[in-house]
């Protein structure tokens, strides 16, 4: 199945019946699949909104009403959605937002890129908040993480971003969908707007004029973010046991880096791969421990160097960090990356 179709199918299997979106390449197969599939379900609703702004606000409304809701877009459209993502965070509403990232800034192009890393992991909109950011690197993982995203969103009442790119959205691999997520693991939604039947009226709001109360709200969010940081960090390692050099990459770039690592291993270089699966919470602690053992780090991203800042923070001055980036929608080959890796490795005489 195609990556974009997998996301859509996984969402439906996770119980999502409400999709609100606006077309943009390279993610159009998600709304197209949703339009078709949801129309066949009795309780399915698909709305093509007039803009990404409208779509994300429909998501807010649907989430307030207690439903599992999703929207998807690509970089320029995600910029428009940032307003709503800030509100979702402030209002503590669960929702899943997919970004099939493309080259930017501005209109950019439609080729695969990872240039929205900062936007995704730093909050992206106004105010002091974080969103859970999941970065799949294969079609199988698109299925798994999309389904998990709905659980995470419900458990923590927070928006979850699936951060992939045009390449993952367009490519096809065989995929097996995991068993349906267990909705029982999600807490009951006792906060939704349903009409004040036999109870006082309920307000879901983010306007808190009293700075003392707004500060308390921020602390409350922060405590939640700390819980997420403790419990939800995910990463994958490849050939790290004897590694003298660690390549750090996520998503599509990690896929290419993995190929590059295999190549340099054939040359006898002891290189391993560390792949963050959650970009926020970033697996900084694990990486920091790795920095006590390994002295050379190689960060590869399809942007001008964004995650590398998190790696720097995680290592806290330990080890040397070399960065290699290809922005603008360029997808380098494993050979190209492997050449840079081996030249760095050999220069350091490891």
């Amino acid at each position: 199945m195609r990556g974009n179709h997998i996301v859509a199918e996984a969402a439906i299997r996770a119980g999502c019946r409400f999709y609100f979106g606006y077309p943009i390449t390279p993610q159009n197969e998600i709304p197209e699949y949703m339009a078709e599939a949801l129309s066949k379900l009795k309780d399915g609703v698909f709305v093509q909104a007039e803009s990404e702004l409208a779509a994300i606000n429909m998501v807010i409304g649907g989430s307030m009403a207690g439903a599992r809701v999703m929207t998807s877009s690509s970089s320029p459209g995600i910029s428009l959605k940032q307003e709503g993502i800030s509100y979702l965070s402030a209002l503590e509403l669960p929702a899943v937002i997919v970004n099939m990232c493309r080259g930017g800034p501005g209109l950019g192009n439609i080729a695969p890129a990872q240039s929205d890393y900062f936007q995704a992991t730093r909050g992206g909109g106004h105010g002091d908040y974080r969103t859970i950011v999941l970065a799949p690197s294969s079609c199988q993982e698109l299925a798994k993480l999309t389904m998990e995203a709905f659980d995470l969103a419900d458990i923590y009442r927070t928006p979850v971003i699936i951060f992939a790119d045009g390449m993952l959205g367009q490519m096809m691999e065989p995929v097996e969908f995991p068993e349906n997520t267990n909705p029982k693991s999600s807490p009951p939604k006792d906060w939704t707007l349903t009409g004040a039947k036999g109870r006082p009226g309920r307000a879901i709001r983010s306007l808190i004029l009293d700075p003392v109360l707004e500060e308390e709200h921020n602390w409350k969010l922060m405590r939640k973010y700390e819980r997420i940081q403790k419990k939800e960090v995910r990463y994958e390692t490849f050939l790290l046991e004897d590694a003298k050099m660690v390549v750090v990459a996520f998503g599509t770039a990690a896929r290419i880096a993995r190929g590059a690592v295999k190549r340099v291993r054939e040359q006898g270089l002891k290189v391993g791969l560390f792949r963050p699966v959650t970009l926020w919470p970033f697996p900084g602690t694990v990486l920091g421990e790795l920095g006590k053992k390994v002295k050379l780090f190689f960060v590869f991203e399809m942007n001008m160097g964004q995650m590398v800042e998190d790696v720097r923070i995680a290592l806290g001055g330990d080890g040397d960090i070399h960065f290699y980036g290809r922005p603008g929608g360029i997808v380098p080959t494993p050979l190209e990356v492997s050449r840079i890796i081996s030249s760095q490795y050999l220069q350091k005489r490891l």
Binding site: N57, G61, A65, A67, G201, R202, A203
Partner: peptide, 27 residues
């Protein structure tokens, strides 16, 4: 919502009808 004792969900500036669309489509 300080005055009306009913369920209310605050909207970003201007997006009320889109947000209401989401609510109504679910319920």
């Amino acid at each position: 919502y300080f005055y009306l004792d009913i369920d209310m969900g605050e909207s970003p500036h201007g997006r009320g009808t889109a947000l209401a669309t989401g609510l109504k489509r679910v319920l």
